[in-house]
Each structure stands twice: as structure tokens, then as C-alpha cells.
């Protein structure tokens, strides 16, 4: 590098010494890899275009179909209006079920804290006691993350039957995987100084983690926890569709019995819940960040 820049500096200095009015200029060297870089860009673009062509074909992507079928959609929506606002048969059961959805999201989040915490400590390079523990816990986290919560729900339904409990169990499993990974990553990013200082004081590995590492990451941990609560409440809606209780179940029933006006009421209730949860967790996270 210095070989390239030195002559340029030298020439620039000379032109200033002679006090010429034209600004110093030097030809920009040609990048010897320019051709190869250009080839790389072109082939990358070609691959991306090819993938999209395959994807359009594979998903029967056809905007004309959407234009032709607009009446079906209009009929569906006009059937849904006005929403059915009957308190006894629609709104009250809807609110009760929404509360169940909220409880599923809450328990699915909080009950995964212990398992996520243990796995995060083992799966963070800065706190893991052994490389083998690191690899094993990383694999466990990947597994829980890779299996969608809806698949966990279907499995648990076979054990504990239809209902919210299966939904809670499913969320605990999936959320352990996601939150454990997020926590492990935020732990790897934090300052290791205090942990190191405690190691020189003769503190055990557990003590170093409890008094040196964890207290530094608590704000990040709480922020990620609230974010996951937000996501889990929305996931528990979908879990309702496969029989795990909550408002999702009611929406599914309304669609199946063609009561689209009832469905619309439920969707509005869900919308309000989502907005409230989103705003509340956002508010707390902003407060924590300060």
C-alpha cells in the first residue's frame, strides 16, 4: 500500500512548492482485478434472476388471475361488512379467547427464560466452560429454532390434547431456540473485562458469569425478551389455527362456517391486541435503552 501512496504524496507536495495555480492531480491507478470483479457481479446477477424465474414458475405466480378474480374477493369482503358486533355471541367470546392468546404468549416467553439462559451461557464463546459444551448447546439451540412452533404444537397436541396448554409448550420450545441464540450473541459482544478481573481474583467460572458477565448484558436481555414476547403473542394466534386455543381458533371456526362478519370482528380485536402489545413493549424497550 505504502508503495502506491508515497509517490502520489511526493508529487502533490512538489506542485504546491512551485505554487502553480492548477490543483495537483495524479492519474488514478487501474484496479488490476477490475475485469474479474465485473464478471463476479454479472454472474451473481444472472444467478439471482434465474432463481426468480424458477420461483415464479414454481408458485404459479399470475397477476392476471388476481385481476380476473377480484369479484370473489369483493364478495368475501362485502359479506364481512358490517362486522358482527353482538356482545353475547361474538365480542365477549372473542375477548375471552384473546386473553387466552395473550396468556399463551406470556407463558411461552417467561417459561423459556431458564432453558434459554442456561443454553445461552453454554453457547456463548466468552462464557462456555468447554468447547464441547459450546458445540452441543449450539446444536440444541439450532434444532429448537429450526423446528417451527406450529410443528411443536402439532406434536404436543397428540400428548396433551387440543387446547392452550399445547400452545404454551410449543412456544417454550421454539422460543428457547431463538432467545437462547440472541442472548448468546449479545453476551459474546459485551466487554469481557469484568469477567477477566474476577478470574484474577480467584472467582469460579460460575461466579465470573454471575458477577462479571450477566450484569453487563441485562438491559439487552430484557429488550430481547420483550421483543420475543411481542413475536410470541402473534405466533400464538397462528397456533390457535391448529387447535391450540385462543382467538386463532375462533377465527378458524368463523371462516369454516362462512360467518365472515364474525371473523372480521375477531380480526379487529386481534389488531387492537397486537397494537397494544407492540406499543407497550416498544415503550419499555425505549425506557431501558436510556
Amino acid at each position: 500500500m505504502s508503495v502506491l501512496t508515497e509517490p502520489r504524496a511526493g508529487k502533490a507536495a512538489k506542485s504546491w512548492n512551485t505554487a502553480s495555480s492548477a490543483p495537483a492531480a495524479l492519474r488514478v491507478p487501474v484496479d488490476p482485478n477490475r475485469g474479474r470483479k465485473r464478471m463476479l457481479w454479472v454472474s451473481a446477477a444472472a444467478v439471482i434472476v434465474a432463481l426468480h424465474v424458477l420461483a415464479f414458475a414454481g408458485t404459479d405466480f399470475d397477476p392476471a388471475l388476481l385481476v380476473d378474480g377480484w369479484q370473489g374477493m369483493a364478495r368475501f369482503i362485502s359479506d364481512a361488512f358490517p362486522p358482527n358486533l353482538d356482545w353475547e355471541t361474538v365480542i365477549k367470546p372473542g375477548l375471552d379467547a384473546t386473553l387466552v392468546t395473550l396468556w399463551i404468549g406470556l407463558l411461552g416467553t417467561t417459561l423459556s427464560i431458564p432453558s434459554a439462559l442456561v443454553l445461552a451461557v453454554l453457547a456463548s464463546r466468552t462464557t462456555t466452560p468447554h468447547p464441547a459444551a459450546y458445540q452441543v448447546s449450539r446444536s440444541i439451540l439450532s434444532f429448537f429454532r429450526a423446528v417451527p412452533d406450529i410443528v411443536f404444537a402439532l406434536i404436543f397436541v397428540t400428548a396433551v390434547g387440543l387446547g392452550p396448554f399445547a400452545g404454551v409448550l410449543a412456544l417454550i420450545c421454539h422460543n428457547t431456540g431463538v432467545m437462547g441464540k440472541l442472548w448468546a450473541e449479545s453476551m459474546e459482544e459485551t466487554d469481557q473485562g469484568p469477567q477477566q478481573a474476577l478470574s484474577t481474583a480467584g472467582a469460579s467460572k460460575l461466579q465470573q458469569i454471575a458477577h462479571g458477565s450477566l450484569p453487563l448484558v441485562i438491559p439487552q436481555f430484557v429488550g430481547l425478551l420483550l421483543y420475543r414476547f411481542d413475536v410470541n403473542v402473534r405466533s400464538s394466534l397462528v397456533l390457535g389455527l391448529v387447535g391450540a386455543g385462543g382467538i386463532g381458533l375462533l377465527i378458524n371456526q368463523a371462516i369454516k362456517s362462512f360467518q365472515f362478519d364474525t371473523m372480521l370482528t375477531h380480526i379487529i380485536i386481534v389488531l387492537v391486541l397486537i397494537i397494544i402489545v407492540d406499543q407497550a413493549s416498544g415503550f419499555i424497550r425505549r425506557k431501558l435503552a436510556v
Partner: peptide, 17 residues
Amino acid sequence: RSTAAMVFQKIHLVPRR
């Protein structure tokens, strides 16, 4: 080793505690 205590340039305390 804990017979020797270390003080660091970057202090290395936990600021939140």
C-alpha cells in the same frame, strides 16, 4: 494466584452495580 490482585487501565468494574 488470588494472593495477587490486579488493577486494570480499563478498570473493569460492572458499571450498573
